[in-house]
Design a protein around this nucleic acid. Structure first.
Lengths: 239, 239
DNA sequence: TCCCGGTGCTTGTCAATACAAGTTGGCGTA
DNA sequence: TACGCCAACTTGTATTGACAAGCACCGGGA
C-alpha cells in the first residue's frame, strides 16, 4: 500500500472527483493527454484507469469523442455486491445484523453440491438477519467451507461485516456467480422479516470462489423488496 | 468486420476454445508469451484479451500464476442481458414472442421520468409476452424514445429480437442500469404468464442509455421465476 | 526427512512511440 | 446562408523495451 500502482491512483482520483461532484454528470472527463500531464504518467496507465471507470459504468465515450460522466452512483461493483454492510454505507443507510445460528455441521444438499463437498463432509452454516436502519431487510443462509468458516466461529458476527473479517484473514474472495429469482416467504422468512407467509421475496443464490475456482462460500439470501433492491449496471463490452 | 482488432481476435478465439471444451474448466490458459507467439502479437493486445475474459469471469489468476479457466458458462455480459433472444439461444432454448400492443403515445409517469421526457411528450410503448420453448416466461413493458421507437413501428416484432433490429438500425445501446426486486403478479401479469394473481415474480426495471448518457429505453420486465432466472457473475476488480 | 534458498517462469506495471480512425469546429466556397 | 471540405484534436490499436513482483520447483544443506 506504500505506493499504489499508477493506474489505480488515477482511477481512484477520478472516482473521487465524480463522487464529490467536481466532475459533474454530463460533463466531459479530461482528455487522456491532460491526465497524462497531470499525473506525470504515460498513456498506458491513464487508459487502464479510464477503462476501469468505463466498466463500472461511470463514464462513457467512444473513439474520437471525449469521455463523459454518465452517473455518480457506482453500479454495484464486486465489493458492494458481496458486502451488505458496504452496500448500506454507500447508499447512506445504517446496516445491522442479528445472528440466529452459526454452527459447524453437515450442510444441506444444495450447499454441499455448490461447494463441491462430499457426503458427510462438514461446513460452517450461518443464519443471519440483516437490518437496514433497524428494519428487517434480508435473511442470509450462508455456508462456508471449513477453512474459511473457522475464521468466523470465534469472531463477533454482530459487530461488523463478514466480508471485512474474511479479507482481513487473507481469504481470496475473487469472483461470485449469482442466480436471482423470486420466491414466496416461507415460515422462517416471514417470522424474521416480519411479513406474512407467501409475500414475494427477491432471492439471490450465490457461490463465491477464489482465483483458482475453488468454491469458498454458498449463500441463499432473501430480500424484502420494499426495503432492499439490487441494482447493477451493465456496459456494452467488446465481444 | 474486415479485419477485427487483434485483441478482439484473441479474445474471441479463447472464448471459442473455452466454449468448445478445448480449454477445459480447471486447466491453465496458455501463457501470455505463448499467445503472443501463436497470434503474432505483442503483449499489449494479448493482455487486453485476457483482461476481457477475466472481467467476464471466464478465467482467474494472479501475478506470477498462470490463468485458469473458471467456467465455460458466460456470465451474462451486456448483450445477453439486453436480449432475451440471445440469452435463450445461449442456454439452448427456443425464444418466442407475442406482441400485444405497440403504440405511439404519452407514456406513464415512471417511464417519462426515466427517459427524461417532459409532460405530454410522446414515446413508443410496447407490451410483449416472451416465451421460452412455448412456455410463457416474461412480460415486457417497454417504452422507447421516439427516434428509437419509430424504428420498431414498421418492423415485424414477432419475427425476432428488438435488440437486433435496433443495433442494425444504428442505435448505440451502450449501458443499462437495472433494478431488481420481487412483486406479486397483477391481473395482466397473471393472465399473460398463466399464473394465479399474487404469484411472486422477479421484476427487472431497466433504463438503457447511449454512450453520451442519453436515455433510449425504459423497461419493466416481469419474469416467471420457475421458467427464467437471472444469473450473473461479479469479479473482484481494482477499486 | 524437512526446510531453506535460489532460479527461472509468469504476470503486473510503465514508458515512449507510431499510426489509424473517428469527431468537432471553422473556414472558404457556391 | 448553406454546404462541404479540411485541419486539429481525441481516442483506439499496436509495438518494443524494460523492470518489478510473485509463484513454483528443484536442489542442497541441516
Amino acid at each position: 500500500m506504500a505506493t499504489a500502482a499508477l493506474h489505480r491512483t488515477v482511477a481512484t482520483a477520478l472516482r473521487a472527483r465524480i463522487g464529490r461532484g467536481e466532475l459533474a454528470v454530463g460533463s466531459p472527463v479530461p482528455s487522456e493527454a491532460e491526465l497524462c500531464r497531470e499525473f506525470g504518467a504515460s498513456r498506458g496507465p491513464v487508459r487502464q484507469a479510464l477503462a476501469a471507470l468505463r466498466d463500472e459504468g461511470l463514464i462513457g465515450g467512444g473513439q474520437g469523442r471525449r469521455a463523459v460522466v454518465l452517473t455518480d452512483v457506482p453500479g454495484q461493483p464486486f465489493e458492494s455486491f458481496q458486502s451488505f454492510t458496504r452496500r448500506a454505507e454507500l447508499t447512506g443507510h445504517r446496516p445491522g445484523q442479528r445472528t440466529y445460528d452459526i454452527d459447524r455441521r453437515v450442510p444441506d444438499a444444495p450447499a454441499a453440491a455448490a461447494l463441491g463437498l462430499g457426503p458427510g463432509e462438514p461446513a460452517v452454516v450461518l443464519l443471519r438477519l440483516r437490518l437496514l436502519d433497524d428494519r428487517p431487510a434480508m435473511v442470509e443462509r450462508t455456508t462456508f467451507i471449513p477453512s474459511v468458516g473457522d475464521l468466523l466461529l470465534d469472531a463477533d458476527l454482530d459487530a461488523g461485516s463478514i466480508y471485512a473479517i474474511l479479507t482481513a484473514g487473507g481469504v481470496d474472495l475473487h469472483a461470485a456467480r449469482h442466480t436471482l429469482d423470486a420466491v414466496p416467504a416461507d415460515a422462517t422468512d416471514a417470522r424474521l422479516l416480519e411479513v406474512t407467509p407467501g409475500t414475494p421475496l427477491l432471492r439471490e443464490r450465490r457461490v463465491t470462489t477464489d482465483s483458482r475456482g475453488t468454491p469458498l462460500e454458498w449463500s441463499d439470501d432473501r430480500h424484502r423488496p420494499d426495503v432492499t433492491t439490487i441494482t447493477l449496471t451493465t456496459v456494452r463490452g467488446r465481444s
